[in-house]
Amino acid sequence: MELANIEKLIEKYLNAATSLQEEATLENYFTQGDIAPHLQEYEALFYYFAKNKEEIFTETIQLDTKKRPNKKLKWLSIAASIAVLVSVFIGNQEYRKYQNEKTFAQVSNALQLLSFNLKKGESAIAKVQTYENTINTILK
């Protein structure tokens, strides 16, 4: 394809006056690699058009609403199951902590009771001690 013709076609192309065939000619020229220096700015444009024609829809068309997996729902369910797992884990931890606190409270209560009773005994012993001391001083 001679250059003069390409230049003419470019002019027509910009005025939206080219036929589909002429536009195919342009695309061929600009994607074959050997392009006149002053026309190089068009290379990327026609290369882009050519490449975009090749893009395809890779999924299979689903006509049954039930079968069609909803992507957003899928992600939502993944997020929900993670949330459940995390909350079970944290809940379990909290429950254990609570159980521990409860046992600690019970034990410390019991110990307090014990120490209270022991103190009672101690004061009784102390009384006996003073009594004994007094007796000793008298007897001496």
Partner: peptide, 20 residues
């Protein structure tokens, strides 16, 4: 359609030329 197409192509060309 033709008018809008021509306008679009010219806009793209103008920007491409600037960059070039």
């Amino acid at each position: 359609v033709r008018v809008a197409l021509s306008r679009a192509r010219k806009t793209i060309r103008q920007e491409l030329t600037k960059t070039h």
